[in-house]
Design a binder for these strands. Structure first.
Lengths: 190, 190
DNA sequence: CATCAGAACTAATGGCATTAGGTTAGGGGA
DNA sequence: TCCCCTAACCTAATGCCATTAGTTCTGATG
C-alpha cells in the first residue's frame, strides 16, 4: 500500500521551507509537512530527529540564504555605500521571507553551531565595518549596534509596530544614514 | 465535588503572568494555568475567550509594567541623562522578565489597541526625544530608530546572539551613547 | 425562601508530537 | 541471478493540548 517515496533529510527540509514561506513559521508542523509529502507523520522520524530539529534546519537554510543575499549586495561596494546596499537588501529579504526570518530568530542559547551560522550570515555586514578601521573594541561595539538596529527595525516592521504609515521607507533610510555617521564617530560625547 | 473557586479574568491573568515569569512564554497553556489554579481547563473559558486572548492579556500587563518602570526612570531627568537611564532600565526590565517581554513581541498586525498599548509603554522614550526639539519628521525617524536599536539589542541579547562575552554591558553603553549623539545630528552626512 | 446567572464540572472531538513494533522494497554482495 | 538485510515506510497507541456541548450546583439577589 505504500511504496518508497524516496524522501531524505533534504526533501523534508525543502518541504518545510516551502511551507514556512507559504504560510509562516507557525504553520510548520510534522503533520503538515508529512501531508505535503504524501506520507504519514511518523515516517518523517527517519529523516529528522524531532520537530525542533526540523525548525533548526529551516533556520539554517534561512541563514545561508540571507548570507548569500547580503554577500551579493556587498560585492563591488565599500564604505557607506556598501552599508546602505546591504541594509536595503537585508530589509528586503526579511520582507520577502518573513516566515524564514521569524523562525531564524527564535532563541537557541547554547547551540554554538547555530550562533555561528547566524554570525556568518551577517559576515558581509561585518566586512563593511572592517573598512572603517576601528580599534578592536569599537569594532565589536559597532557591529553589535549595527546588528541590533537592523534586526530591531525589521522585527518591529514585521510585527506592525510602526503602524501603517507610509513613512517607513524614509525612517529606514534615516536610520541607515545615521548609523553610518555613528560608526565614524569613534568616541561618544560625554 | 467542586465548590466555586472564585476565579475572575484578573485571577486567571495573574496566574498566567506568574507562569510566564517562572517558566517562560512557551510554558503558557490553558491546561497549565488551570492546573495552577486547581481547576479543570474548560472552566477557564468563563473568563477568557481562548488561549490567544490570554496571551494578549499577559502582553498588555507587560506593557503596563514596562511603561511604569520606564516612567520612573525618566522622572527628574532630561536629555542624554534621561535617555541613558531609560535605556538601562529598559534593558534591565527585559532581563528580569524575559518571558513577559517575549510574549509582548509577538506580531499582532491589525490589533490597534495592542499597538497603542505598546506605544504607550514607550511613551517615556518618546518624551525624551521631545526635549531635543527636532522637526516633526526627524522626531518620528529618531523615535523609530531608538525603538529599533533598543529592541534589537535586547532581543539579540535574550536570544544569546552576542555569544557569552562579558563585554555586552560595554556594548550597550556604547550603543546608547552613540544613539544620543545620533539624535543630535539633525542631518545625516551625504 | 425561591430563583437564576454563571462558575465550575464531565464528556467528547480533533489536532499534534512522539514511540514501539511490524512489513516490505530495493540495493549490495554471493 | 538470488538472497538478505537495512532502512523507509507503515499502523497502533499514548499522552498532551484547545475547544465545544451540555450538565450541575452554588451563592447572591429578590
Amino acid at each position: 500500500m505504500s511504496g518508497r517515496k524516496g524522501l531524505s533529510k533534504n526533501t523534508v527540509v525543502d518541504a518545510a521551507v516551502a511551507l514556512v514561506e507559504a504560510e509562516g513559521s507557525s504553520a510548520l508542523s510534522l503533520s503538515r509537512v508529512a501531508r505535503e509529502l504524501g506520507v504519514e507523520p511518523p515516517s518523517l522520524y527517519n529523516h529528522v530527529a524531532r520537530l525542533d530539529t526540523l525548525r533548526r534546519e529551516v533556520a539554517l537554510r534561512a541563514f545561508e540564504d540571507l548570507g548569500s543575499t547580503l554577500g551579493r549586495a556587498a560585492m563591488g561596494r565599500a564604505g557607506p555605500e556598501a552599508l546602505r546596499a546591504i541594509a536595503a537588501d537585508f530589509r528586503n529579504y526579511v520582507r520577502q521571507h518573513p516566515g524564514l526570518y521569524e523562525i531564524s530568530t527564535v532563541a537557541r542559547p547554547d547551540d554554538a553551531a547555530f550562533q555561528a551560522a547566524a554570525r556568518s550570515a551577517l559576515e558581509p555586514v561585518m566586512a563593511v565595518l572592517r573598512i572603517y578601521d576601528l580599534d578592536e573594541d569599537d569594532a565589536i561595539h559597532a557591529a553589535r549596534a549595527l546588528r541590533s538596529a537592523l534586526h530591531g527595525f525589521v522585527s518591529l516592521e514585521l510585527a506592525g509596530g510602526f503602524g501603517f504609515d507610509v513613512e517607513i521607507d524614509a525612517s529606514f533610510s534615516w536610520l541607515v544614514d545615521h548609523l553610518a555617521g555613528m560608526i565614524e564617530q569613534p568616541v561618544a560625547r560625554r
